[in-house]
């Protein structure tokens, strides 16, 4: 089981990184989403894997899955929705404003020479 979950985390991370390195906003956003899954699952596994013992108290049971990582990951999932929405909005705004959805500004797009004091 542990091997399987670790594989899944690895595959999602790899896919996420690859898409993160693409040149257009949409695949980059998908890559970030994949990485989010991977990170959330990884955080979740910090409570170690437990089958058939959800952290809902029952009479006669004394072993439960670790509830704390679950609570933290729960809010992380919701927050990551908010962040995805913001990133999508920024990407969309950039595309609508310039008709271009590249993530890279060329190095010559900005003249970075600082303004000097002219005596």
């Amino acid at each position: 089981m542990e091997l399987l979950v670790a594989c899944v985390i690895g595959v999602m991370t790899a896919g996420g990184i690859y898409l993160l390195l693409r040149l257009r906003t949409f695949p980059v956003i998908l890559g970030i989403s994949l990485l989010t899954y991977a990170v959330n699952v990884f955080l979740f596994t910090s409570g170690r894997l437990v089958v058939g013992a959800p952290p809902v108290l029952r009479d006669g049971m004394d072993a439960y899955a670790d509830p704390l990582p679950q609570a933290l990951v729960l809010t992380a999932i919701v927050i990551s929705f908010g962040m995805t929405a913001v990133v999508v909005m920024i990407g969309l705004g950039a595309f609508l404003g310039s008709d271009d959805d590249h993530v890279d500004d060329g190095p010559h797009d900005h003249d970075s020479t600082p303004v000097e004091d002219q005596p």
Binding site: A6, I9, G10, M12, I17, L21, F42
Partner: peptide, 17 residues
């Protein structure tokens, strides 16, 4: 890079669990 990163994540998660 992605494969190396994925392997790293795998190894870490596996050892951790």
């Amino acid at each position: 890079v992605a494969i190396v990163g994925g392997l790293a994540a795998f190894a870490m998660a596996y050892h951790y669990m």
